[in-house]
């Protein structure tokens, strides 16, 4: 199942571990376990991770893609206000409601699984350490 390649998007796989010699796992719908990712609504403020799946109708997905919510993109939850999430993706801040956020699935990056600082890329990949 494991497959090694250079960049996430080029083979449309997800990156499970960052750093050199990353392992990419192909994703497909219905793959059990955490690799299908969790919905953004289930995340807490301060969490971050990589997007693995975007559900929803074509037009909405297109809008999300244009905003930077593409597979493999780094996303973090910077704030929450009465049901709306404020996310950081591709260097910009986007607020959305829970219905929308529930369509986006991501795999959290935490310090426990994988080497320290799994994502060192600066591009939108600033990892929040608070909380």
């Amino acid at each position: 199942m494991g497959e090694i390649c250079d960049r996430c998007n080029e083979c449309n796989c997800i990156c499970e571990k960052g750093g050199a010699g990353r392992v990419y796992l192909p994703i497909s719908e219905g793959t059990p376990g955490p690799r299908t990712g969790m919905s953004l609504v289930a995340a807490k403020v301060g969490d971050c991770g990589r997007i693995v799946k975007i559900h929803g109708v074509q037009e909405m997905r297109k809008a999300l893609h244009d905003l930077g919510f593409v597979l493999g993109a780094h996303v973090s939850i910077t704030n929450e206000n009465a049901g709306n999430l404020i996310l950081e993706v591709k260097g910009s801040r986007i607020a959305m409601d829970r219905a929308m956020a529930s369509k986006i699935c991501f795999v959290p990056i935490s310090n426990e699984n994988g080497p320290a600082a799994p994502d060192t890329r600066p591009a939108g990949g600033r990892i929040k350490e608070n909380k």
């Binding site: 998007n9 449309n12 192909p26 297109k62 893609h65 930077g68 593409v70 597979l71 591709k90 591009a123």
Partner: peptide
């Protein structure tokens, strides 16, 4: 590629940008 068409292209664009910005 197992993704929807505009997702593929948006992904390609953003990964190109990520490389440049990196």
């Amino acid at each position: 590629i197992d993704n929807d068409a505009d997702g593929i292209i948006a992904g390609e664009r953003y990964s190109f940008i990520e490389r440049v910005v990196d």
